[in-house]
């Protein structure tokens, strides 16, 4: 079990299909992400970028295909029959590999920054309060918020809230971190501070990062590999300098061109 777990890719989609009503958001989608890789996913809105992350976080299911996280099968559906074992315990075990940061931060407004970061370890991992809070304090210092431990989310700026949210996700020591448009809700002058924290995380070689964004600056700053997604399909992928500067596919070119005009 542990042998396969370390050899397996961090994330694997195999022939995954998903639609919302008549819209196909994933169309027999395949993608392997090796451990430690920093992958950035770009594409027009509605192309299924965020859905990818939400599936990995178990916030959405798929209609057919297979999804694996760190060698464990999250779901394996064929003809409407689920072949992966079910059960809340298993689901929670798989979720333990993954952390997620949301566009709208989704901090708990009734908890201070420190409590937000400590609550995962305390409630999911059953750590002691002292231990969890010491660790949370260290994490908040690492994201530059050592002086905001007692502040509540609504007392913080958007950039600060998002840094708390990153610390909160990291507190569970996930192997895979998902970033869903984390800089999109921020004023331009606040993007830098969040991006700096993400770059610092990216220096951790063992951490797998999966970043969805429509800001090419973010993509350039973080990516080992850029994937261009359209209509639920992977249109083009490769190192950032290739996909962003010399795209081969006309669809990619069109998309980047439209972005540059904006």
């Amino acid at each position: 079990m542990s042998a396969t777990a370390t050899d397996a890719p961090a994330v694997r989609f195999a022939a995954a299909c998903k639609s919302f009503g008549d819209t196909r958001v994933l169309d027999r989608f395949d993608l392997d992400i090796p451990r430690g890789e920093k992958t950035v996913i770009i594409g027009p809105s509605g192309s299924g970028k965020s859905t990818l992350l939400r599936i990995l976080m178990t916030l959405e299911g798929i209609e057919s295909g297979r999804v694996e996280i760190c060698g464990e099968t999250l779901t394996d559906r064929f003809d409407g029959v689920e072949r992966a074992p079910r059960g809340r315990g298993r689901l929670r075990k798989i979720r333990g590999h993954v952390g997620m940061v949301f566009q709208q931060f989704n901090l708990f407004p009734h908890m201070s920054a420190l409590e937000n970061v400590a609550c995962g370890p305390r409630l999911s991992l059953r750590r002691s309060r002292v231990e969890a809070e010491a660790e949370a304090e260290a994490l908040l210092r690492r994201v530059g918020l050592g002086d905001k431990l007692g502040s509540y989310p609504l007392q913080l700026s958007g950039g600060q809230q998002q840094r708390v949210a990153i610390a909160r996700a990291m507190a569970l020591r996930p192997e895979v971190m998902l970033f869903d448009e984390v800089t999109s809700a921020l004023d331009p002058e606040l993007i830098g501070e969040v991006l700096a924290v993400m770059r610092e995380l990216a220096s951790e070689t063992s951490l797998t990062m999966l970043v969805v964004t429509h800001q090419m600056g973010v993509a350039r700053a973080l990516a080992d590999r850029v994937c261009f997604l359209e209509n639920g399909r992977l249109v083009e992928q490769g190192p950032p300098e290739q996909v962003l500067d010399a795209p081969e596919n006309p669809r990619t070119r069109e998309f980047l061109h439209a972005l540059n005009l904006a």
Binding site: M57, F102, N106
Partner: peptide, 8 residues
């Protein structure tokens, strides 16, 4: 969703 992401 945040609670699920934190595996609570």
């Amino acid at each position: 969703e945040a609670a699920i992401a934190l595996n609570l």
